[in-house]
Structure formats: C-alpha cells, structure tokens
Simulated scan of single mutants.
Amino acid sequence: MIWSSASHAEGPPAVAPESIVAGIDVGGPRKGYHLAILRQRQILAVVNSTDPQQILRQCLDAGVSAIAIDAPSQWTSNAASHRTIRSAERALLQAGIHCFFTPTRERAAANQSGFYEWMFQGEALYQALAAHYPPARQTQPSTPFCCETFPHAITHQALGSETRARLKRSQRSQLLQAIGLADPQLDSIDTLDATLCALSAQAILQGASQAYGEAEDGFIFVPQREFWGTT
C-alpha cells in the first residue's frame, strides 16, 4: 500500500481549537529556513533563520504541537538503482501530482553542483527537532510531532487541475487569502510555502489529511480537499 488516509473509523483525534502549529520551508545554507507559526487563522510568527536550533527554540517557546516541513524526511534507501524512488513520491505521481525524486544520501553527497544542499539542510532540521518533535511514523501521529509535506501537492489538492507551477506564487497567495490568511508578513514564496506547510500540520490534527507513502521510507502529508472548506 502506498497511500493511506489519516482519517480512521474511530474519527479524528480530540484537538483543542487553539492548537498551535508550524510550517517550515527549507532552503539552502544562505536562504535558510522560513518558519510560520499559526493558531487557527492567526499568524503568530514568521521567522527566517539559518540555524535549526533557533527554529526549534521558536517552536518550543510558542507551544507548537505539530510541525510540517517542506523537505524529505528520509533519503531513498536503495542505492542499487537510480530509478528507485520513495513510495510517497511514487504515490504522488500516481495521483497526478508532479514531484521531485529524493536520491540516496550517497548520491546527494557525491553531487558537486550543490543542488542537494537544501536536502542536507532539511536533514539537519529533522535531527534538531527529533528529540522534541519526533518524525511521524503513523498516518495519525500523536503530538508533538514533525512530518513532511509538499506545497505543490497542497495546492494541487485544493485547486485540482488548475494548479500551475509557473503561477505558484499567485495561486498559493490566493489560496491563503481565500481562507482569511492575507498578511503582509507573507511577502515571498518562502513565507507562503511555510504557511501552507503549517496548514498541512493543522489538517493532520483535524483528521483531514492524506498520508502518501509508507512509514518505512517516510509519509508525505497533504490536506484533503474538504479541509479547505472547513478552515
């Protein structure tokens, strides 16, 4: 199985309406991490830092219970074939959602172009968070946790076939504005994506998320389309 629903027969978990969530967009060493912290439709903080420990402190100080991150939670494990991809990425493709394939760590480290630096930044972030926010290994994880999400998949799930990569800034901005998240702090694609990631964490807490993939090589969580009508 490579697709799971985070909603189960026992229903969504009991989550306080004021639950605080965070989303993190991961960039290279210079760009660093963009963090958005939300309570419902209120933006509590938008932070840019190159230090994963500062990101952790911000989340702890704000009382964040769930964090969704735009970066691979695991490397591809099979080094024998360059065609091997993670089950979550395969599942997204089967759902008609284009995504980037995560390589093995060895292949990423051997690359001389610097293209994969942001993935190593993501690895450092997961490591910094792990003691306080362990990576999700279930489709409905217990809080506190961190997990992987993907802004393009979030937008695609909300807008369907209208989603266009070349329009990502305008479409993602309009999506957030439609649910009352028009804020001058969201002034770049990085802050927009961090906010979408935070909403993905919120959807998990509300039992309104799809988990693509398998625990073995990492889920990618995406809000269900119905989530956008209830937020």
Rank of each mutant, 00 (worst) to 15 (best):
R57M: 07
S161L: 14
Q140G: 09
W3N: 11
S19G: 09
R83P: 00
E148R: 01
Y212F: 15
F150W: 13
W75V: 06
I20D: 02
N48M: 13
I220Y: 02
Q224P: 09
A158D: 07
S142P: 05
Q121L: 08
R137I: 14
S65H: 12
A211Q: 02
V15H: 13
Q74P: 03
Q171F: 03
S49W: 07
G96C: 03
G28A: 14
S73N: 06
Y133N: 04
R107H: 14
A91D: 11
W228M: 06
D187Y: 01
G96A: 02
T143R: 10
T76H: 14
P184A: 07
M1D: 14
G213Y: 05
I20S: 02
A108P: 00
V47T: 12
G32R: 07
G122S: 06
A14C: 11
Y212P: 03
E216S: 14
P223Y: 11
P223W: 10
A194W: 01
R164A: 09
S5Y: 10
A14I: 14
R86T: 04
D217K: 04
A95K: 09
Q140E: 11
A71F: 04
I85G: 08
Q40N: 13
D70E: 12
T191K: 14
E117W: 14
R86E: 07
T191G: 01
A198I: 03
R105Q: 15
M119Y: 13
I179D: 06
E214Y: 00
A66L: 09
V64T: 03
R164D: 07
D61M: 04
I2Q: 14
G218F: 03
D70P: 05
C146Y: 05
R105L: 08
S81V: 02
H82C: 11
M119P: 00
R30Q: 15
F145P: 01
A165H: 11
R225N: 15
G229P: 09
P184Y: 05
G114E: 09
I55E: 02
S73L: 10
N111G: 08
V15A: 15
P151E: 05
Y33I: 08
S49K: 06
Q177A: 15
I189R: 10
S188M: 06
S5E: 13
I67F: 00
H132M: 01
A182G: 11
T155P: 00
L175N: 00
D61A: 13
Q42H: 12
Y116K: 09
T149H: 02
C197Q: 05
Q112M: 14
I220M: 02
I2W: 12
L196R: 10
A130W: 06
T195G: 00
A68H: 01
E162L: 08
L186T: 04
A68Y: 00
Q54I: 12
S19K: 04
A130M: 12
E89G: 04
K168R: 13
L196Y: 08
A124G: 04
T104F: 08
E226A: 15
V222C: 10
T230V: 14
P12T: 09
A14Y: 12
A201E: 03
A109T: 13
A165T: 11
S49G: 00
A182N: 11
A68M: 01
P72A: 07
A211I: 05
R169W: 10
A68K: 00
Q121I: 05
R57T: 10
R83V: 05
Q157V: 11
G114A: 09
Q174F: 01
A215V: 04
H132T: 10
I154D: 02
Y212D: 07
A45F: 01
R83M: 11
L38H: 04
Q174T: 10
R30L: 14
G213L: 05
Q74G: 04
